[in-house]
Design a protein around this nucleic acid. Structure first.
Lengths: 175, 175
DNA sequence: GGCAAAGCGGATGATAACGTCCATTATTGT
DNA sequence: ACAATAATGGACGTTATCATCCGCTTTGCC
């Protein structure tokens, strides 16, 4: 009964095997997308572990690659893994305490610009105005991610966002 | 006398031929970095055109690749180009009217998430909570870039940021 | 017209990101 | 002990990004 994620109805699996998030820009890496989907899915069943196959099926992420991403999450201390029958991945902390920034940092860390990227030692701790602006933008991104927990993502607190349900009422019919 | 950019002293050229902005994360693409440096440099001499070689030398960007980036800026309507002797690139609009977001969009557009990346038609115009958060972060980034003009980058209005000068006094000695 | 300066465009190569495959190891159940 | 399950790690293949090179065209100057 667990395993209901916001972007998925528990009816039939939708028919989009492969997908492409950003056609032109690279702002959010594919890997981050995958990690966030996986974590969101795991948050729906914090108690029992989920296998890579289960996660992949639910999140529409290529299985083999997801395995790599999950290992990154393990190394990052986001999830624990258990092998063998009944094994799988489980979130280490409760979704309420897990900020999505932590997931991002585990798989593809946002590197703030602390030093001049041109390598000029003379700049010391001071950034050029340009790179200060860029770093500000990174900070805004960090902030947007650090102020949101997985639990908040799961059940949208503000009721104005209809949780990706079906406004009309009908789930996506496959014909 | 134009050609002074915030991160460079007009003394000797610093000895960092190649550089690497982000070792782990891909948030800002290299191409965007290059484009912003070039635009910042061009803003120091809005009147007369600058050649690729001049820009490359000043911004420490690989010449051959910079040529490609400049072409993207031309196509994006950010700069104009003139061939032949005395030719080069010039900003189309004044630095005061040029938001750095426009430069970003010209070379590597930030694509907002307007539709469910999983391709579920059922979601319609509503985003899942997760992707709504991600899009919010993108919006924050966009906003950070759209509220800054090139002119503001060039001469930092707030005097607290010392414009990448040398605090101690000495430029980077090469030994 | 001829020559040099400079951008333009296509072809090619290097490196990292993305993705797959398979053997190995750990765990559970019989 | 044996077999089935599931994560782990390494090798490999594919694709996009970053980067270089070279021939072509346009422009200005003599």
């Amino acid at each position: 009964m667990a395993g209901r994620i916001p972007w998925q109805s528990d009816g039939e699996p939708p028919a989009c095997p492969r997908l492409l998030l950003h056609s032109g820009a690279t702002l959010l890496s594919q890997t981050v997308e995958y990690a966030l989907r996986a974590a969101t899915y795991l948050a729906t069943s914090p108690d029992e572990p989920r296998t890579v196959d289960q996660i992949a099926e639910a999140t529409l992420v290529p299985v083999a690659y997801l395995a790599k991403v999950m290992q990154a999450l393990v190394r990052g201390g986001i999830v624990t893994s258990r092998r063998g029958v009944g094994g799988g991945f489980t979130l280490v902390r409760s979704p309420r305490e897990l900020r999505i920034l932590e997931i991002v940092q585990a798989v593809d860390p946002i590197q703030r610009i602390t030093t001049c990227p041109l390598g000029l030692a003379s700049h010391g701790t001071n950034l050029c105005p340009l790179h200060r602006r860029l770093d500000n933008a990174l900070a805004a991104m960090e902030d947007a991610f650090s102020t949101t927990t997985l639990a908040e993502v799961l059940s949208e607190p503000s009721s104005s966002v209809p949780l990706c349900g079906f406004p009309g009422g009908k789930p996506a019919k496959s014909r």
